[in-house]
Design a protein around this nucleic acid. Structure first.
Lengths: 337, 337
DNA sequence: ATGAAAGCGCTAACAC
DNA sequence: GTGTTAGCGCTTTCAT
């Protein structure tokens, strides 16, 4: 099946010839560098328009050494939290005329390494990484090439890679403190896979180290609404002592509410439910969800801004820790009796 | 603030010198093209490893004319539906060693055009576009450069851009048919912004043209969980005749359920709620949500596959329409009385 | 099996 | 102000 020949893309030379100037002059008007007389500029621009000339990114990149592309390695894209992160990243990068390439890692460090290599070979000038755990080879790659890399979703001011993150430790502590203050003593903790997710692990360790006299019973499940619902059903059926469920994300919490309600429990009368993230949806659930607000989108924006500055100026950004805030709504109340 | 000099990236020449061969030979082992003796290959590979050589994408691109990057222009990234699309796209493109660049358009055709230009200048070889409405200049751009472009989320077999999509018309018809079959006659329709979203407009027009004797009262709201909840509260307060709410997405439907429940209605006894999309969460809501399953992730995968083939072989893909399926759960029932 | 050399489209010295 | 030209790092003939 022969396809009709596509019109050959015109290049700088074509434009130069068409405008009756040199390639250097065309390059100058393209980059607004150097002085060009208004008349010449106009002629060149006319030629550009007429030939529908678009400079080839690769050719620019090869000379300037800049690709203007940044890669993001995220556990999954099909997840409300990371979708918000991407949204924030892209918004800020776009302002700096930087493009965002995304890749999924599935929380697998080998996949992360492989996808990082791919993004780098595709020309990424910088990388966003989620969490702290990396394949050593990736760390080494970053160090060796002095590659701009920013760590998201894990606050670690002393690591080799600057963090731009919310504070998981503070978030979990705020959540636990709220439940303790209400009088809860037996807490079911609904969380995603611990083994592969260092943010989850850190939160769990934080709870364990709190020494606040509460008892935390962990319920691991899939990190999703459906996972939260399944965990809640398990909790309800077990008829354990838990009077509150601390969920490590709002999606888990929303699912947990549905799960408890399906089991006939009334929230917060029979069970308090608390989320972490404060999705926009949290204010509209039934009942409205108490949650610890994480500045997820802002994290994306700040990280995007920091990366833009890094690749433009070469200045490594200072780590940034975004604070969190407990938003008390109606899904938590003192335990019965 | 002077930064320490980064180790200079080594290039083909360095590798060639290090291995005692010519650049052509190194290029051959890199591309597995042409014959190279095992010993030479080994020497070259050792040199590559030792110098940590990574070929520069831009330089390859300039020769091959291929950037191996595809751009996706999506209304928002912070949206469960599009997050699933991106997930599917990225998964398939990665298999073909293609990278995905994403950009948000906010349903604004001028923004879409501007971001498309940016992605193209960044080197995108192909574009994914959501919906059918475009700025004429973008259409022209695509036609002029014979740019591989695939339309998502809008089935239009005859348009200038091949669709890979689910079928909005069939989905809405299936939803309406289900409600009619249950005996509902007065239907509240909860939907996102109509003016800027041609998928929403098409669905609304489909309902209007159905001639099935049902009365559809549209409630426009923000396309989100919170928007669905707000619409439901409006509907509940209005105390209108509606006995069912047809929601144009599952997120809207989940929000609507919460909104109705907050208003004291019991689903489906007082109000049937029906979604479109069938998110994984739909099976776990309280009550489980009746929804029309749209193959969103599969759409992403199929589109990714089609694009990969298109840029590899030059063959324009055939349009693909994914069918939908009504999944009846517990959020719909015959009206009371 | 390997190498020499000619570009690819563009930028950036440098010359006029 | 404008042009000339030497690359950038790689692929790809075409010789050998």
């Amino acid at each position: 099946m022969p396809r009709p020949p596509e019109k050959k893309r015109s290049n700088l030379r074509d434009v130069a010839a068409h405008a009756g100037v040199s390639v250097a002059t065309v390059s100058r008007v393209l980059n607004a560098s150097g002085r060009v007389s208004p008349e010449t500029r106009a002629r060149v621009q006319a030629a550009i328009a007429e030939l529908r000339f678009r400079p080839l990114a690769a050719a620019r990149a090869i000379n300037s050494g800049r690709s203007r592309m940044i890669g993001a390695l995220l556990p999954s894209l099909d997840n409300s939290t990371y979708a918000r992160v991407i949204d924030g990243l892209e918004a800020r990068l776009a302002e700096h005329d930087l493009s965002l390439m995304v890749a999924r890692t599935g929380e697998d460090r080998q996949v992360e390494l492989a996808r990082a290599r791919q993004l780098l070979e595709a020309g990424a000038e910088g990388l966003f990484l989620a969490g702290r755990t990396r394949a050593p080879a990736l760390l080494e790659l970053i160090a060796h090439y002095r590659l701009p890399a920013i760590m998201l979703a894990y606050w670690d001011p002393d690591g080799p890679i600057p963090s731009v993150s919310y504070d998981n430790v503070a978030a979990v502590a705020a959540a636990a403190d709220h439940l303790r203050g209400l009088g809860h003593r037996e807490i079911a903790v609904i969380h995603g896979p611990r083994a592969t997710n260092d943010r989850t692990a850190q939160r769990l360790e934080t709870l364990a180290a709190l020494g606040d006299g509460l008892r935390y019973a962990p319920f691991e499940t899939e990190l999703s609404f459906a996972g939260g619902a399944a965990a809640a059903r398990r909790i309800a059926q077990a008829r354990g002592p838990a009077t509150a469920a601390l969920c490590f994300s709002d999606m888990l919490a929303m699912g947990a509410m549905a799960g408890f309600q399906s089991a006939g429990l009334v929230i917060p009368r029979d069970m308090s439910v608390l989320g972490i993230e404060d999705l926009p949806a949290a204010a509209a659930t039934h009942p409205p969800l108490t949650s610890v607000r994480l500045q997820v989108q802002r994290m994306g924006e700040e990280a995007g801004e920091a990366m833009a500055r890094w690749v433009e100026t070469g200045e490594r950004p200072a780590p940034l820790c975004l604070d969190c805030e407990l938003i008390v709504r109606a899904s938590t109340a003192p335990p019965r009796g």
